[in-house]
């Protein structure tokens, strides 16, 4: 289980998120919902260890990053909001580097890499450099790299930006597939219809605080709006 307890943090000692408490179970997709600047990306960066919390603990299967960095990092996968890549590596070399970093065997690299390239229609681009790719392709590169390691938990920050409808569908299918195989997913998105359809639980973040969390039905009950959509619920809370 990925567990976040009393997390307070931000940039340069200025707290942007306050006393967050939540968890992500295996085989569960949790939607992180909030307006721009609500603290979604900051929360994800804290979980990844890219920012140091001012207060609180983050554990994966009971272990913190400080206790066992290798164990912690091997279990986390991340797809960032904007494309991140090594300019000097081709698509396949990105996969090879990731395989080296996460101790995958050559067979695992070959097998998983080929499947993912085919799935995202990138087989012909395996020797391309990211600079030669469109933004959507760069986004796919990041996804392929992340799915290659088959992590226990996936943190995804606005994954649908720049993707064509087909790639978006493939990503969602892949997320469903990973979820069935035991991966816990924390999905930050503004596309509420997708979140409503695919996520099991939701965290509504506003000004760095969790206003409400639970399944759609639980939130409907708490807000006393039995038939509302996720979007309506979100607007009701934030307005």
């Amino acid at each position: 289980m990925l567990s976040v307890r009393n997390l307070t943090g931000g940039y340069s000692n200025i707290p942007l998120i306050h006393q967050l408490n939540f968890h992500v179970n295996p085989s569960e997709m949790v939607g992180l919902i909030g307006l721009n600047g609500a603290g979604k990306s900051t929360t994800i960066k804290h979980i990844l260890g890219l920012l140091q919390p001012l207060e609180g603990t983050i554990t994966i299967h009971g272990k913190t990053l400080e206790e066992d960095p290798s164990f912690f990092r091997k279990r986390l996968g991340y797809i960032p909001e904007s494309p991140q890549f090594y300019e000097e590596l081709t698509l396949w070399e990105h996969l090879a580097l990731t395989a080296h970093a996460y101790d995958l065997t050559d067979e695992q690299l070959q097998e998983r890499g080929e499947v993912l390239l085919k799935l995202f229609h990138m087989e012909k681009r395996r020797d391309w450099f990211p600079q030669m790719m469109s933004k959507g392709m760069q986004q796919k590169l990041m996804m392929i790299t992340t799915f290659l390691i088959e992590p226990d938990f996936l943190l995804i920050d606005e994954p649908f930006m720049g993707l064509d409808p087909l790639a978006m569908q493939q990503l969602l299918q892949l997320l469903e597939h990973r979820k069935k195989r035991g991966t816990g997913i924390l999905l930050s998105t503004h596309i509420l219809e997708i979140a409503e359809k695919y996520c099991d639980r939701f965290l509504f973040l506003h000004h760095g605080k969790i206003l409400i969390q639970g399944s759609l039905d639980e939130i409907r009950t708490q807000l006393n709006q039995p038939n509302s959509s996720l979007e309506a619920l979100f607007l009701a809370i934030t307005q």
Binding site: G49, Q84, F85, Y102, T145
Partner: peptide, 11 residues
């Protein structure tokens, strides 16, 4: 000079 992945590797 590298993307943030480098900070996430377990090595």
């Amino acid at each position: 000079q590298y993307p943030l992945w480098i900070a996430l590797y377990p090595k």
